[in-house]
């Protein structure tokens, strides 16, 4: 079944096709969300929300891009919204801050389950550094490294030009180098 057929069936409310789409893309959505939010429970919630959005908003899908691109862009938006909401909650948790003992603003260590065993320690440091990047740089870098997407695909997902993505990648790498250098200078 080609994409046009899948979209047509989804628009007709075909539950079998919907089930197939969820089964086919659930890990892709989950991995993307997990790599951005760096929290398993949040990534699970985002994945569910993405598929609920697919069900509710498929009628508004204009078929200008691939279905996977559309799903990626919903995932990225929901993941960033989730982070903003959490940051707001953290800022608003005044009483919680008063009564908590030595609560640091440093990101919590995150271990991605798909990282090779030899790289686990370094990857944890890298994920921590990624949290310090601006959103666009972080998303562009993460989609390329964790989902293996081309710059062209990332440009479609982030609705920007190929040149902008190339620039984001370069800036992300340079910023990460600076952050990691500072980190290792303090921790070695």
């Amino acid at each position: 079944m080609d994409q046009l057929e899948i979209i047509a069936k989804l628009k007709q409310g075909d539950k079998t096709v919907y089930t197939e789409v969820v089964e086919q893309w659930q890990h892709m959505i989950y991995n993307t969300a997990l790599s951005i939010v760096q929290n398993g429970e949040d990534a699970e919630d985002i994945t569910q929300d993405v598929f609920v959005s697919l069900y509710e908003r498929i009628q508004s899908f204009r078929e200008e891009s691939a279905l996977s691109t559309w799903l990626y862009s919903i995932t990225v938006r929901k993941a960033l919204d989730n982070e903003k909401r959490k940051a707001r909650q953290k800022r608003g948790g005044f009483l919680q801050r008063i009564f908590s003992v030595n609560e640091s603003d440093e990101p919590v260590n995150f271990n991605h389950p798909g990282i090779l065993l030899d790289n686990k320690e370094n990857a944890t440091v890298l994920f921590k550094a990624l949290k310090k990047l601006p959103d666009k740089q972080r998303v562009a870098f993460t989609l390329h490294k964790m989902e293996g997407l081309s710059y062209q695909q990332i440009a479609a997902i982030m609705d920007t030009s190929l040149y902008a993505i190339e620039s984001l990648q370069v800036r992300a790498k340079n910023n990460l180098k600076k952050i990691l250098k500072e980190y290792y200078e303090q921790h070695l």
Binding site: T19, V22, E23, Q26, H27, M28, I29, Y30, N31, L34, S35, A43, E44, T47, Q48, F51, V52, Y55, H112, P113, G114, I115, L116, N119, N122, A123, V125, L126, A129, K145, M146, E147, K173, L176, K177, L180, K181, Y184, L188
Partner: peptide
């Protein structure tokens, strides 16, 4: 170390969602 850290995501496998996601959705 910085270079090694930057390359640490190479060869990473996709994380998989928990089973029965469809049921929850």
């Amino acid at each position: 170390l910085v270079e090694e850290t930057l390359d640490s995501l190479e060869g990473a496998k996709r994380a998989e969602a928990k089973p029965f996601l469809l049921t929850r959705v």
